[in-house]
Write a protein that binds this DNA or RNA. Structure first.
Length: 445
RNA sequence: CGGGGUAUGGCGCAGUCUGGUAGCGCACCUGCUUUGGGAGCAGGGGGUCCGAGGUUCGAAUCCUCGUGCCCCGACCA
């Protein structure tokens, strides 16, 4: 999907709010409403307005690229599923009220999918017969619905949410772990590309048990749960070297699981203190932005997803599932990246890279200079939002800080008279007056 | 699902106790003056006061029953 490379604010739909809506408690929820990214449709259900939708699509695209790079194949499954499938896995009765159940005109029982293990297993079972059909990894990015008792925190804990979920299919447990490791490595890259510091933490595997389940957590003051980890995690960079998915990825997994990291539920204070030197101990708030899980034949066995081995046996495939909360990430990134004035987008997910501010719309020199810059940025392939409205300077500055584009290019009559424009970096707050060419160069870099 | 709040114009709120036919700030529209960090003056538009019953000459206000939304907890991507 191609996003519009440039917009004029006078023609855009970005209803910003000066005051905080009373229903929004945490920063990301407040800022998303104030910046005109989303509007609540009902509890835990949101409409995505143009700018919020752009960010959602950018995150989705990064997820997609990294899934593809790891060798997963994209599919698209429906939001509405049949109850029959869920009866086979036994989850139709287990899932409880969180599952939104629907009856169609023929009184057939349907449901709005809260997840897709059953459907994907059914699809795989239908299309794979032989050990030669594995390994296989399938993923899709789709809306899901869980009828949470208490939705909150805006899009971070909505009832309807956009999620990437992937599934791996292998012949043996050993191969299954290899697939798990691929996803582990690709997740590290995915979050790093979004400008996030992510820490994999051993997750509670529940009744199934086993070592192979990790939650991917980012640190943010307003995070939902308490986490404990070694501070050296923050110095690791998953993008420092290329990830070779054909190679053995166990060293990468080992490197990222060697140091102590645990959520509240899994935390062991004694171990924490013995394994991590005092000055390296981080105890902070975290937000879960992904979860990976190897669960063997839990679904393949009851649903009959078997393949034939080279010695003529039928064996259920070994499966894993891998989730990334795409819509949740929009909120999570804001939680990790904002200040008192508004959002501070990491460049990779920013709705636009540059905000072009015309300080005096209607002034010939300013209008002409801005139109020229607006056109040049498009030629350079730099996504730009041009504030061409006849608002006062203060309004434009405040608005641009609120929506948090990485760069603000400010064009006013005073600067133009001296042959300069002002370039402000939203993150550092640093402002510099530069000749236009120089400013464009910096922005493009 | 337990506990607590709240519902008045697009947003934030007052008015409810003590009933008399709705108000303030922001936003919006028009005009003039302004113009480098959320302008000033003047004029203007917009509200079934969450819903349904009831009490009353009269209900945003009192009573009853619903509903939406938010917060804390338990639960979760």
């Amino acid at each position: 999907m191609r996003l519009s490379p440039a917009v004029r604010l006078s023609e855009y739909f970005m209803p910003t709010l000066k005051e905080n809506p009373s229903e929004a408690e945490i920063a990301s929820h407040r800022l998303m409403l104030r910046a005109g990214m989303v509007r609540q449709a009902s509890a835990g259900i949101y409409s995505w307005l143009p700018m919020g939708f752009r960010v959602l699509k950018k995150i989705e695209q990064i997820v997609r690229e990294e899934q593809d790079a790891a060798g997963a194949n994209e599919v698209m499954m429906p939001t509405i599923q049949s109850a029959d499938l869920w009866r086979k896995s036994g989850r139709y009765d287990d899932y409880g009220k969180e599952m939104l159940r629907i009856t169609d005109r023929h009184d057939r029982e349907m449901l709005y999918g809260p997840t897709n293990e059953e459907l994907i297993t059914d699809i795989f079972r239908d299309g794979a017969r032989s050990y030669k059909d594995v390994p296989q990894m399938l993923y899709h990015i789709q809306w899901k619905f869980r009828d949470e008792v208490r939705p909150r925190f805006g899009v971070m804990r909505g009832r309807e949410f956009y999620m990437k979920d992937g599934y791996s299919f292998d012949l043996t447990v050993e191969d299954g772990i290899k697939s798990y490791n691929k996803m582990f490595a690709s997740y590290l890259r995915t979050y790093a590309r979004m400008g996030l510091k992510v820490i994999p933490m051993r997750a509670d595997t529940g009744p199934i048990g086993g070592e192979n389940s990790h939650e991917f957590i980012i640190l943010a003051d307003t995070g939902e749960s308490e986490v404990f980890c070694h501070s050296d995690f923050l110095g690791l960079d998953p993008l420092a070297e290329k990830t070779d998915y054909k190679a053995d990825l166990q060293p990468i997994v080992d490197k990222w699981t060697a140091m102590y990291a645990a959520t509240e539920e899994m935390h062991d204070q004694a171990r924490f203190e013995s394994e991590v030197p005092e000055d390296k101990r981080i105890s902070a708030r975290g937000i879960e932005v992904g979860h990976i899980f190897f669960f063997g034949d839990k679904y393949s066995a009851p649903l009959g997803a078997v393949v034939q081995t080279s010695d003529d046996k039928q064996v259920p495939v070994q499966m894993g599932s891998y989730g990334i909360g795409v819509s949740r990430l929009v909120g999570a990134i804001i939680e990790a990246c904002h200040d008192e004035n508004g959002i501070i987008w990491p460049e990779a997910v920013a709705p636009f890279k540059v905000g072009l501010i015309n300080l005096r719309t209607g002034d010939d020199a300013c209008d002409k200079a801005c139109e020229d810059i607006f056109a040049k940025l498009q030629v350079m392939g730099v996504e730009v939002m041009y504030d061409d409205r006849s608002e006062r300077a203060g309004v434009k500055f405040a608005n641009m800080d609120l929506i948090g584009l990485p760069w603000q290019l400010v064009v006013g009559p005073k600067g133009l008279a001296n042959g300069v424009v002002e370039l402000k970096n939203r993150k550092s707050g640093e402002k510099q007056e530069l000749p236009l060419d120089k400013a464009l160069e910096l922005v493009a870099g």
